[in-house]
Nucleic acid binder design. Structure first.
Lengths: 134, 134
DNA sequence: CTTGACTCTATACTATGGTACCGGGTCTAT
DNA sequence: ATAGACCCGGTACCATAGTATAGAGTCAAG
């Protein structure tokens, strides 16, 4: 697969594919005699993974670490395990942050629905108070 | 209030106050004879509002819109409420994806403990559903 | 064997949300 | 009236995550 095909299938810019390769997020592709990148099909789901992980609030650096987690024969299993556990902690932390966010937003919406018809928007008023533990 | 006082009270950088003013997030302050900004006390809660809204996942541009909505209250509340609900939907989707990712990572840890090499990277399969953007 | 679409590297530029620095002016207490 | 703290606008810079462009080379169909 050429880079253009990869970009089209993964729905990203060609430049983005090259950028991800530079950032070490993609397996370095083979090259044709003329120097064209020849990607395997795996790269498309991988790019989609990257995009989704980004939406979840992971930076490209964190995503690179996630992608580096793999159990292979002969490799230091303990190391992989340790890093995976660290990532689980990170994911749990992100989950908690999202929970806080959701509760805060829901509280605001509910305040909005309880409001007297003539009152000011309570969402905006509530934002003037500190968020509970977000 | 001088800009330094505002920054100290709102716990942001002086540059940030000027930046927010440039971005149209603050009411343009009066000036002293010598050109110093003279802020009214309102600006401190407003900066706190901005900071909190950011924590809720709003961009500065969205926050500028929220602040503009506040002026003409009434039907503005519904508008603000709708935006908050949209954010909640997004947050819920992200939570589900994080759960998937966590499960995938846990599977990886378990594979490690069994010292079984993973044929395919299960992490890549963890984020299969695209997030619809808000 | 040429033409046009595609790709190459390298560099520069964009947006977002700030932060830092510069040479100067202002404010205030002594 | 002068030191020192503060502020001014302007510009440059930071990180992150790309996107655009230039000038050259490659690939494949006709």
């Amino acid at each position: 697969m050429t880079i253009g095909e990869v970009a089209a299938r993964a729905k990203v810019n060609i430049q983005t594919v090259r950028y991800y390769e530079r950032r070490g997020l993609l397996v370095t592709p083979r090259r044709s005699a003329g120097g064209y990148r020849q990607f395997s099909d795996d790269v498309v789901p991988r790019i989609r993974f990257i995009k989704r992980a980004q939406e979840l609030g992971f930076t490209l650096e964190e995503i690179a670490e996630l992608l580096a987690l793999r159990v292979r024969h002969g490799e230091a299993c303990d190391d992989v395990r340790r890093r995976a556990l660290a990532k689980i902690t990170l994911v749990e932390q992100k989950s908690r942050e999202l929970e806080n966010l959701k509760r805060a937003l829901e509280g605001l919406v509910q305040a909005c629905e309880r409001r007297a018809p003539t009152a000011e928007c309570p969402i905006l008023e509530a934002l003037e108070e500190p968020l509970s533990d977000a």
